Lab assay of single mutants.
Amino acid sequence: HMTFVALYDYVASGETDLSFKKGERLQIVNNTEGDWALAHSLTTGRTGYIPSNYVAPSD
């Protein structure tokens, strides 16, 4: 899985969403939902949907 870094803070709007903080590292599990991606946080160990425009690929 590619690793991504959060560009902004995001507060989950539902139970299936994943909250994260700017700078948090995430792995995209499934990116077939258009503007949303299923992601796993390497920081918190949690998995949920995130807005895909809130993250960018990290080196």
Rank of each mutant, 00 (worst) to 15 (best):
D9W: 02
V55L: 11
A12D: 03
Y8M: 10
S58I: 15
S41C: 02
V11G: 05
G34L: 07
H1T: 12
F20Q: 00
Y10H: 05
T3N: 08
Y8N: 07
S52A: 12
V29T: 07
G14D: 08
S58Q: 13
T16Y: 15
I28D: 00
A37K: 13
A37F: 15
T47M: 10
P57M: 11
E33V: 12
N31Y: 15
M2I: 13
A37Q: 11
M2S: 10
Y54K: 06
T16W: 15
L18D: 01
E24W: 01
V5F: 07
D35L: 09
L26Y: 00
K21R: 11
I28S: 01
T43M: 07
G48E: 01
A37C: 14
T3E: 14
S41W: 01
V5Q: 04
A39S: 02
N30D: 13
D9K: 01
V11C: 11
S52Y: 15
Y54H: 08
T43Q: 08
V5M: 06
S19D: 06
S41E: 01
D35M: 10
N30M: 14
T3M: 11
H40N: 06
L26E: 00
E33Q: 11
A12Y: 02
L42K: 05
W36T: 05
F4R: 06
A6C: 09
A6R: 00
L42G: 02
A56P: 11
L7A: 06
Q27Y: 14
T32E: 10
K22Y: 03
E24F: 01
S19Y: 04
L38W: 13
V11W: 10
T44D: 04
V55D: 04
V29L: 15
A37V: 15
G34R: 07
G48I: 01
G34A: 07
Q27I: 15
A39F: 04
Q27R: 14
Y10L: 03
S13Q: 14
F20W: 02
S52D: 04
V5T: 09
L18R: 02
G34Q: 07
D9Y: 02
A6V: 12
E33N: 14
S19F: 05
F20I: 11
S52C: 15
N30C: 15
N53P: 06
T44L: 03
I28L: 10
E33C: 15
T16D: 14
A39C: 02
I28N: 00
T32Q: 10
F20V: 09
T44V: 01
R46K: 13
D59Y: 12
S52H: 09
N53R: 13
S41D: 03
N53S: 14
M2T: 11
S52F: 15
S58N: 10
F20C: 05
L38S: 02
P57Y: 11
Y54C: 11
Y8Q: 09
A37S: 11
N31C: 15
E15T: 11
R46S: 07
F4Q: 05
G48W: 01
I28R: 02
Q27D: 05
S52K: 15
G34H: 07
V11H: 09
D9P: 03
T47D: 06
E24A: 01
S58C: 15
E24H: 04
N53T: 09
A37P: 08
I28G: 01
T47C: 14
Y10W: 07
S58H: 12
E15C: 13
A56Y: 11
Y54D: 02
S58L: 15
T47A: 06
G48N: 01
Y10T: 00
L26P: 00
I50L: 03
Y54A: 14
L38P: 01
Y10K: 01
L7E: 07
L7Y: 04
E15L: 11
V29Y: 11
L38F: 11
D35Q: 11
L7D: 05
G45R: 04
N30P: 07
H40Y: 13
A37M: 15
L7K: 06
R25V: 15
F4C: 11
E15Q: 10
F4G: 05
P51W: 03
S41R: 01
T43I: 09
P57R: 09
W36Y: 08
T43C: 12
G48H: 02
T3C: 15
D59Q: 11
H40A: 06
L18S: 03
K22G: 03
A39N: 00
Y49M: 10
L18P: 06
T47H: 07
L18Y: 04
I50V: 10
D17C: 15
V29F: 12
D17W: 09
T16G: 13
G23A: 02
L42S: 04
G45E: 03
A56L: 09
P51H: 03
S13M: 13
T3W: 14
A56K: 10
S41I: 02
Y49P: 02
K22T: 06
L38D: 00
W36R: 08
T43W: 06
S58P: 10
K22L: 04
G48V: 01
H1N: 13
E15F: 08
L26W: 01
K21E: 07
N30S: 14
T16N: 15
K21C: 11
A39I: 05
V55Y: 09
G48F: 04
L18M: 14
Y10R: 03
